[in-house]
Design a protein around this nucleic acid. Structure first.
Lengths: 194, 194
DNA sequence: TCCAGTGATGTCATTGACTGACATCACGCT
DNA sequence: AGCGTGATGTCAGTCAATGACATCACTGGA
C-alpha cells in the first residue's frame, strides 16, 4: 500500500530531528531558536513541543532504546556471571547501536559545545546507570555493589566513548571499551603492600 | 571597626541563598519564581542574576571550593601513592566540607525533587571528575587510567553520599566512602576463573 | 572641601522557551 | 451523511534571562 498522504507531510519527528541537527551544527545551539527548527521542518513551534519536551531533547531521542537494550543484556547474562560481566554485556549491547563514527562525532561536537546539552547528556547517562542498577538488583546483586557496578560501568562507557570520538577512527568502540575495562581493573587492583 | 552600613543591607548573596533554600523547600523549585526569591532577599530580580548565573546556580555556590580542595588533596598525596589512594584522599577532603546531615538532607531533597536541579548537580560532579583527572595527570598518571580513576572516584562519592543521606545518620560520610570503596574493589576484582 | 571615579544596585525593555485553551480538518468507521 | 479521533495550527500568557542606562553611597585625591 502507498503511504496515505495525510493533511500534513508524514514523519514530523524525523524532520524536526534533522532540522535541529543541521541548525545546531551550523549556528550553534544557543543561536538557534525553536521557531527556526520548526520552520525548517515545516511545522509550528507548538508542534515541536508536542514531539519534544524542550529545546534539547530533540538530540536525545534514542536514549530510551539504549536503556532497554542495556537492561535486556543484563537480564540475559548467565545467572552465574558476576556483576561486572553482566555490566560488560550491557556496554557491548550499547555499543552495537551507536551510529557510525562520523555521525556520532558530529552529534558529540554539538553537545560538547554547549553546557546545557552536556547537562542533558549527563542525566541520560545517569538514567542508564539507574536502569543498570535496577537490572543488577534483579539478579540478586546487593547494594552498594549494584550501584557501584552500574556507575562504574557507565564511567567506563563514557571514557571509552570519548576516546573513540577523539581518536581518528582506526579502532571500533568495543575496542575502547575493553581498553577502559582493563584500565579500570588495573586502577582498582589492591596495590602491592609494603 | 563596625561594618559600614552601605546604601543597601550587606551580604545580598547570603540572603539570596537563604531565601532560595526556603522557597524551594516550601513550594518546590518549579513553583518558585526568581522574582519571589529576590523579593524575599530584599533585592530585585536583576540583582539576583548579577550574583547567580541562573535560577539553579544559587544552590551550588560551594562547588568551586570543593573542586579546589580535591585538587589540592591529590597534589599533596605522596608521590608513591597509586591513583586510587590519591583519589581516596580527595574524597576524604570533600567529605570534610560537607555540612551536617540534616542540612545536607534538606538540600538534597530539593535537588532530587527536580530534574533540572539533578542535571545541574550532575554537571558539577562531572566538573569535579575533570579536575580530578587533571590532578592525576599532573602526577604522571596516563590516560585512560587518570580519567577512570577520577570517574570511578566520583561514582564512589556519589553512591556513598546517597547512602549517607538515605540512612538515619548513625554513621558518618567517611564510613560510607570506605564501604563503597570496598564494594568497588570487590566488584572489579578479577573473578575466579573456571 | 569638593569632585571624578567606582561598584553595587535599580529600572526598563526585550527576547525566547515553554504551556494552556481552543479551533481546524483529514481520516476511518458506522 | 454523521461522528469520533489524532495531529496540527492559532493565540495569549508566564517566566527566565540579558542588555542598556540611571542612581547613589563611598573613596581617593586635588
Amino acid at each position: 500500500m502507498i503511504a496515505a498522504m495525510g493533511r500534513w507531510e508524514p514523519n514530523a519527528r524525523g524532520r524536526l530531528e534533522q532540522a535541529a541537527l543541521e541548525l545546531y551544527g551550523e549556528r550553534g545551539f544557543e543561536r538557534t531558536t525553536v521557531v527556526e527548527i520548526a520552520r525548517r521542518a515545516g511545522v509550528t513551534e507548538r508542534t515541536y513541543f508536542r514531539h519534544y519536551a524542550d529545546k534539547r531533547e530533540v538530540l536525545f531521542a534514542g536514549s530510551d532504546l539504549l536503556r532497554d537494550l542495556m537492561e535486556q543484556a543484563v537480564a540475559r547474562a548467565p545467572a552465574s556471571a558476576p556483576p561486572i560481566e553482566a555490566t560488560t554485556a550491557a556496554l557491548e549491547a550499547a555499543a552495537s547501536v551507536i551510529p557510525d563514527h562520523a555521525q556520532a562525532r558530529r552529534r558529540q561536537a554539538i553537545i560538547e559545545a554547549n553546557a546545557e546539552l552536556r547537562e542533558r547528556e549527563l542525566i541520560k547517562l545517569a538514567t542508564l546507570a539507574e536502569a543498570l542498577t535496577g537490572a543488577l538488583r534483579g539478579r540478586g546483586v546487593p547494594e552498594p555493589a549494584a550501584s557501584l557496578a552500574a556507575e562504574t560501568g557507565i564511567a567506563v562507557f563514557k571514557v571509552a566513548f570519548e576516546r573513540w570520538i577523539g581518536d581518528t577512527g582506526e579502532a571500533d568502540l568495543p575496542h575502547y571499551i575493553r581498553e577502559s575495562l582493563d584500565a579500570l581493573r588495573t586502577v582498582t587492583a589492591e596495590p602491592a603492600r609494603r
